[in-house]
Amino acid sequence: MVTDLVSMSGTSDAGLFLKKYECVDDIAAQSPMTFVERVTTPTLILQGQDDDRCPMGQAEQWFTALRERRVPVRLVRYPGGSHLFIVNGRPSHRRDYNERIIAWLEQWIPGAGAPGSQS
């Protein structure tokens, strides 16, 4: 998860490239944190604890900012999980990741998971 491009540019293994090639203008103005006060959508954050591409601090900042604004939010850390833990991580983590997404959608989308709700 990327929420603060300023800190991301100095803490991610790809931060320099992000700042130099992708977000060349005012990176603070392009950061999701700049607009967090507009967020009202319930948010599930599933983060690999050892992700060097999108450091854990990014997820923690977003979680805290949403929580302070009383937006429904849950943060789940996967110990030892890298950036691609959902593809090549522990099978237990991959299963948990998928189960949490399904449960979250069923909780927050009316009719999700109900018999006959598919079109």
Rank of each mutant, 00 (worst) to 15 (best):
T11M: 04
N88W: 11
T41R: 01
R94C: 09
V6L: 05
I109N: 15
P72W: 00
M56G: 08
A103N: 08
P115T: 11
L66P: 13
G113N: 07
L75D: 06
W104T: 02
V87T: 07
N88T: 05
D4Q: 01
L66H: 04
R67P: 07
N98K: 03
F17G: 12
H83Q: 07
A29Y: 08
W62H: 15
S117I: 05
Y97M: 11
F17P: 11
V73Y: 05
Q118F: 11
V39H: 07
D51E: 03
R74Q: 09
M33S: 03
I102K: 10
D50N: 08
A59Y: 05
Q107N: 10
Q107H: 10
T40S: 12
N98P: 00
V73I: 05
V39I: 15
T41I: 04
W104E: 02
D4E: 04
C23Y: 12
I101R: 00
W62P: 04
Q58V: 07
F63H: 15
W108Y: 10
W62C: 05
G57A: 06
R77D: 13
D96I: 15
G57L: 06
S7N: 12
Q30F: 11
V76H: 02
A14Q: 06
T41N: 02
H93E: 06
W108K: 11
D4S: 03
W62F: 10
